[in-house]
Computed example of a mutant assay.
Amino acid sequence: MKNRLVIKGTLLTHQGSFYVGKEIFSSILFSVVNSWYYSYYENNGELKANISNETAREYGKIKSAINGFTEDLHNLSINYCLFKEINETVHINGHKSNLYISVILENLFTNLRSIYDFLYHFVKITLSEKELKLYPQKDSINNLLAFSKNKNNQDKLPKNIIWILNNIENDLNDIKQIRDNIIHKGKDFLLTRKEGVLFMRVPIKATNSNDNLLPNILNTNEIDYNVEKYLNKIIKTTLKNMEDFGVIITNEISSNSEIKLNLYSISNYCVDEFNEFLINKNSY
């Protein structure tokens, strides 16, 4: 493990290093929202432009969403790294290991759900002042999806934003189903090992029932799902949706001369293993 200048932070990078696989996690969406932020805010967090109080409040919400989004990206990598260490450590009591991993899985799915909700705020970057006034006030991606589907609202959002919202809906529903069952309905992960490989399911009623509340994203006939394969697919899907969203937002604001587009990445001591997990698990 190489020493880093920062334990956990945001880096302004360049085209030559803007790819996944090194010591940074690169993201188009992360870049465009940070480019927006540094175009309108000073380094000390003060607004550069003299804008109305109403617009300033909305900008403040976007700023907070960028901070939360950044933390969730870090948390994804850190929680995966922690999961990997616990899962591969034979010195931890098996029952304790399962308890630790259950909490980490809960954290990971909560992070993924949170990432989708931040998209609600990032759409605002693409809107005109008139569109911003018509934007739904409840800060939820669910509410935005419902708004975008209403035929009376088709001229209140950019067409590409409506398209991408519709495109990510099924994947969002998978995450919502998992998070809601675990957080709101008090369901638990049932973890088992088969030939040293960790599997999971969320029983509907009892631990000995032959069912699983987790969406079958692996398209398998098995009741128990391989944890690493499941995490690999659902995290990759979320990140792909995130990047598709980033491309749409970048295209929508390309004519805005006030926003200077730069490339940004995150770095922390867990990014190496996180990138390795995402890239090199080819069998997943």
Rank of each mutant, 00 (worst) to 15 (best):
E88F: 00
I234V: 13
L214K: 06
D180P: 04
F245N: 02
D72Y: 11
E71L: 15
K194Q: 13
N93W: 05
L172C: 00
Y269R: 10
L172S: 00
K2L: 09
Y37V: 12
M200P: 02
Y284Q: 13
T10D: 11
S267K: 08
S102M: 01
P158R: 07
Y269E: 10
M1V: 05
N210A: 09
E195P: 00
Y230D: 05
I217F: 07
N43Q: 14
G21N: 03
F189D: 04
S102H: 05
I182F: 09
Y230V: 05
A146R: 12
S64T: 10
T89M: 09
K48V: 14
Q177M: 13
Q137S: 14
N153Y: 04
F274T: 06
A146M: 09
I115F: 03
F30N: 05
F199S: 01
A206Y: 15
W163P: 00
P158T: 04
S97M: 12
I125K: 01
F122E: 04
K229N: 15
V271D: 02
I28N: 04
Q177C: 10
Y135S: 02
F189L: 07
C81V: 06
N226L: 08
F69M: 01
K2E: 14
I204W: 09
K133N: 11
Y41E: 08
Y230R: 05
N143P: 03
K48C: 14
N173E: 15
A146G: 00
G9Y: 07
S128L: 08
Y225D: 06
L157D: 02
E106S: 14
V90Y: 11
N275A: 03
D139T: 11
L191D: 07
M1H: 08
S148Y: 03
